[in-house]
Structure formats: C-alpha cells, structure tokens
Nucleic acid binder design. Sequence first.
DNA 1: GCGGTTGCAGCAACCGATTGCAGCCATCGT
DNA 2: ACGATGGCTGCAATCGGTTGCTGCAACCGC
Lengths: 352, 352
Amino acid sequence: MTTGEIDGAAGRAPRLADVARIAGVSVSTASRALSRPEMVAAGTRERVAAAAERVGFRFHPSARALTTGRTGLLALCVPTLANPLYAPVVEGAQRAAEEIGNEILVVVGEGSAEREFGLFERLRDQVDGFIAVRPHGGERALADLRRGKPLVVVNRRMRGVSSVVFDTPGGLREIAERLTALGHRRVAYIGGPEGSWMDPMRRAALEWPLTEAGGTVVTLGPYPPTFESGMDAAGELLTTGSTAAVAYNSMTLLGLLHRLTVLGVRVPDDLSLACADDLTGVGLAHPDIMALHVPAQDAGELAVRELMAEIDARAAGHDARPRHRVIPVDLVGGDAAAPPPPRPAPPEEALA
Amino acid sequence: MTTGEIDGAAGRAPRLADVARIAGVSVSTASRALSRPEMVAAGTRERVAAAAERVGFRFHPSARALTTGRTGLLALCVPTLANPLYAPVVEGAQRAAEEIGNEILVVVGEGSAEREFGLFERLRDQVDGFIAVRPHGGERALADLRRGKPLVVVNRRMRGVSSVVFDTPGGLREIAERLTALGHRRVAYIGGPEGSWMDPMRRAALEWPLTEAGGTVVTLGPYPPTFESGMDAAGELLTTGSTAAVAYNSMTLLGLLHRLTVLGVRVPDDLSLACADDLTGVGLAHPDIMALHVPAQDAGELAVRELMAEIDARAAGHDARPRHRVIPVDLVGGDAAAPPPPRPAPPEEALA
DNA sequence: GCGGTTGCAGCAACCGATTGCAGCCATCGT
DNA sequence: ACGATGGCTGCAATCGGTTGCTGCAACCGC
C-alpha cells in the first residue's frame, strides 16, 4: 500500500545511488550486485539487495536502456484486433514477455504492407525486436528488416526468418480423414478471404485425403470471414450436392449453420459441418460439428521466447540461425459426427 | 530505401552531435533548434533542420526520456482483447497516439482489479499516463492511481477521474421510445454478465420510456455475452409473453435470433429485436433489427487526447480538473421494425 | 553616444544507470 | 616470507540528449 518512500529525499523515486549509500557501497557495486550478482561477494550482494528492497528500488527503464541499448520493449504487429484469432496471440505474447520483465508494444498493421513497414520503421530504435503476425510485406523486405532488428514471424512461413505457424493443414487433413472414414466423398470448402496466404494450403490439406479416397473437394468463395458470409454461402453450398462442408472460419460456420437451419437442413443428419478454428466455441457447443482448436496463446508465447533467443544471441555476437516452429492444433467436437445421408443432402424445396 | 547513412561514422545511428557538427553549431543549439524552435534564430534553425534531414537524424527515445521524464508511451488497459468492443477502442487510441508521436502500450487486465493494479504498478515509471477501459478497481484505488500518473477512464464514470463514456443508455432510451411508439408494452431485456457496471443502467434506460407508456420491462439473465447465451435465453424469453426483446450485446442477439428462427418465431412479425451494440453488423444486415452503433474508435481517440491534456497540464504545474465526455451512439437498422403481433408472441407449440 | 534591454548561442552540469580499468587485499605456491 | 594470482570494489568515462546560466553583440530610447 505505501509507496515505499522510507529513506532518502522523500517524494523522489529511489535511485541506485540511494541504494548504494544505504548499503554502504559504491554505485557501481550496487549496479553489479543487482544486475550481475555473480560478480559481487555474497555478503555485499545481500546488503545491496536488502537496501534495494527496503527503499523499493526499481531500475529506471530509460536510464538503463540508454547504456545497455535494450529497451525491454518488443513490438508485436497484428493485421487487426477485430479478428478474434489475434487476441489470444497478443495475450500469450504479453504473458511471456511479462514473465521476463519485458513489455509488448502492440501495433495494428491493418493488412497493409506499407503501413506495416511504416510502423516498424517508426519503432525501430524504440524496441528490441519485432514479431509480425501474418505480415503482408514481401519476403525480401522482411528479410531486410530482420537484418536491422531480430524478427519472428507468426502464421506465415518463409526462409531466413524465424517463424511460428499452426498446423491447421494437419488439422484439416484429420477432419478430411474423419469425413472420408464416415463415408463422405463430396465435401465443400467455404474459402477464406481473397488473397489469404493460408487459404490454398487449407484447401490442399483437405483435398489430399479426400481425393485419395476417390472423393472431391468443391471450393466456394472467396468469402470474407464473417457471419454474413456463412449465410450467403449456404445457398451456394446446397447447389453443390456436398454431404459435408468445411468453413474457413468459425464465424462463417455460425452463419452457415443459421441459414441451413432456417432452410430446414439438419446438421449433421443431412449435412456434416466443420471449421478451421474454434474461436466462437462451436466445437464445444455442438458436438456434431468438428472444429479445430488453435492454441493461439502458445503461438504468442513461443514467438516471444524465440525472439528473445534471437535478441540475446545477437547481443552475444553470434547471429542465431532462424528456427521454424509448428504448433499442432486439436480436433474438437465431432463426437456426434454423422455419415452422409443416403441420398445427396440438399432437399430441392429448401432452395425456394 | 537507403538507411540514410550519408555522413558521419557509418553504421552508427546519427546523434545530435553529428547534426550539430554538420550545421556548424553547438549541441545545445541543435537540441533547441529541433525541439524548441522558437528559441533559435530562423537561419540557424533551418541549417540544423537541413542537417538533421540529411543524415536522417532521429531522437534517441531513451536518452530523451531520461532527461525530460517523458517516455512517449501511454498504457492502455483493457479487460480483454477477445471482446470485439475493445478492438476499435485500441485502434482509435493507437491512431491518436501515433499522430502526436506517442505509442500505446496495450495491456490486458483480464477483468481482475488486482491484475489491473499490478500492471499499472509495473508500468508506473515506464509510461506517461494510463487509460483504463472499463476498469474493475475501486474508485478509491483509481483515484490514488491518478495521483501518481495522469489517468483517463473509458466506459465507466467516476468522480475525480476524467472519463469517456458512451451514451448507450441514451440509445436504449431511443430504442424503447421506438418500441413504445410502435405499440409494444411488454419488452424483455436479456441482461449482461453478472457484476456488469453498465447492466443496471441499460435496464433503467429501457425501463423509463416503457413504464411511462404504461408498459413493463422483463429482465432475463444475467447471461454472459455470447452466442450461446442468446440461444439459451430464447426459451426463457418465450415464456414471458414479451413482444420485443433487447439484448445486452449483439453476439447474444445472433444466438437469440438463431434459436428463435429454429423455433419458428418470425422476426419482426412475431417478435421485435434490438441490441445495445453493433459489433457483428446485425444492424446493417437485418433492417428489421435495431442496433446501436457505438463509435468505439472515437472513444479511444478522445481518451488519448484527454490524457495528453492532463499530462501536459501536469508538466506545466497546474493540475487539470477532470473532465467527463459522453459519446453519442447511433441507432441503426430498425427501418423495418414492426408493431407487436395482434396476440402475444410465443406460439405455445414452439416451446415443445 | 551611452547604459540598458533583448535575442541568440555556447559551456557545462545533469538525468540514472553501465562498464573498462585500476587498485586493493587475501590467498596461494614455492 | 615474498611475489604472483585472482576475487572484489571503486573511479571515472560514457550513453544521447536537455537546460540553467553566462556571454556576446546588436539594437533600443533618450
């Protein structure tokens, strides 16, 4: 509760000099006792620690940054905060940074490479490194950026820059396998937004097990990842004669589910559904729907750890080789998944 | 494209000393020319500016912070990033901060007063001020916090601390007026999460015009603000004999709409719907549904401006008196709003 | 024409830490 | 017992700006 102004000129925050005076050592010794304990005799170290504790000493971040060249700030750039996928990434990163006494500076790239680089440029000497979530910049530009400051990319893989990606394709493959095992042969894929880097990957992941079983994937879209899109896609979907549909996104899935229900299509009896994330909790709420639980927090944490490793390595002279981490996703729900209906799904009258 | 290493010892970022040397003035003059132009003769000022431009000079943030005591960082604490209401607040704040060369440090309070204060404490001497969005801490504690650093509160009003709030109650009153004008007399309110500060306000705002017209508000809940909750609330709603329902939140409204549709209740013929925000776009997508468009970006921007005013005032000695800003909300949709059905809505058989 | 402003620029101290180097003392080897 | 070694500690320079104070010169009015 007290602000800790026990000794020293009251009102001012305690400085290292105050601690040193109280502990009866020089400022340099106090500095070392606190930040490089192994360089100081045990007794001294404890006296300094006690003094620091007593006055509630805390390093002045700017002063420290000035000499060490490290600010304790990590920039995290996300395309938007409106997409609920990124919220847990940010929170995970924050947690990880917090644990090691760093802070995350979140900035929003708004899906524009130009703005992204503008931000990086502006923050260049204010942060120790960058995390770019689903960056829109070109590979060259990002590699250049990395030359200046350590960089970790999330949700996109590229050579020469450390990355953290989800194994969503793996999850989709699993979904596809489940569906084919159940007997589905014609599966619709409700595509994601135009220009999505991941969209083709996802489609491909879905396609593999299906074609192997002699089935087909019908691609719909592109659609923006919204509830509305799901509703829009429903009509198109029913014309395809698919017995199952996989949505790019769980928000889209909700819209799809809504419109299908209105049209009298029963899930999963007439049509099986699945989606590539689990941000709205569909997977848990509807056991008949398959969803992929994406541990986005882990990605944030991992990215921070990876970034710190690069920062430390660079500070120590030896530039770290980029590493690529893949985070597995979990198939949730689908316990009540159903085989395809005896006859192709869409009851014609439902289209009225 | 070039990093701007034109003169000086290549590789190192240019310092003020480099600029001074090139411009042929002392470091102090260079400093003043750039940060307090009015203290320097026009000619000198231009020479310095030109030199700075030429070498791509930028102030070293930490060095500057060390002497001025201002870091250019503003902490913004939100309860969570998962709630889409806060995303635009953050983005608005970021925009505003960016314009004046500051950065926003976003932190997540996770709805815990304890964590909130822990964060504030940790960031105390790293930022110039705080913005607390929907803070959970007690009034006393927040007022204390303000004594230490400038503080602006968003989405909560309290004495002694500047605030920015939405006029959601005003919007709800408008909705209530529209409903009563259409002839509705029994309106259900799907309550928000337990412990919500705003929930009673919203209910009250709804109640006023209704009781004045001789009607009633039936309160349901509390419900967490999710799609699921809406689905859950549908059943309860139908037992109340209401002819209209207002949801705390648009996500809940979507769930409600979904379940109602499944149950065969037509909107708005059997039941009119409205909700207190517009984050999922319902208001635009369903012209028969009334929603409140909440300009959350504006709140973020306004909060930053207010905070900067307090920071500057405090730096100048005279402590600013707290100000309270109210941001109007817009009623969107509802163009196709309907009067109550001839007989109370819930077709008994729908409850089966 | 002279004392008194006024405007502009520079010197040097300072913000709060870190760190290379030097000095000190104790311990060790022989 | 004496020089060498090594572990601790302190001095002072440094990081990159800011700012109070001083000094200089041009300009003012009388």
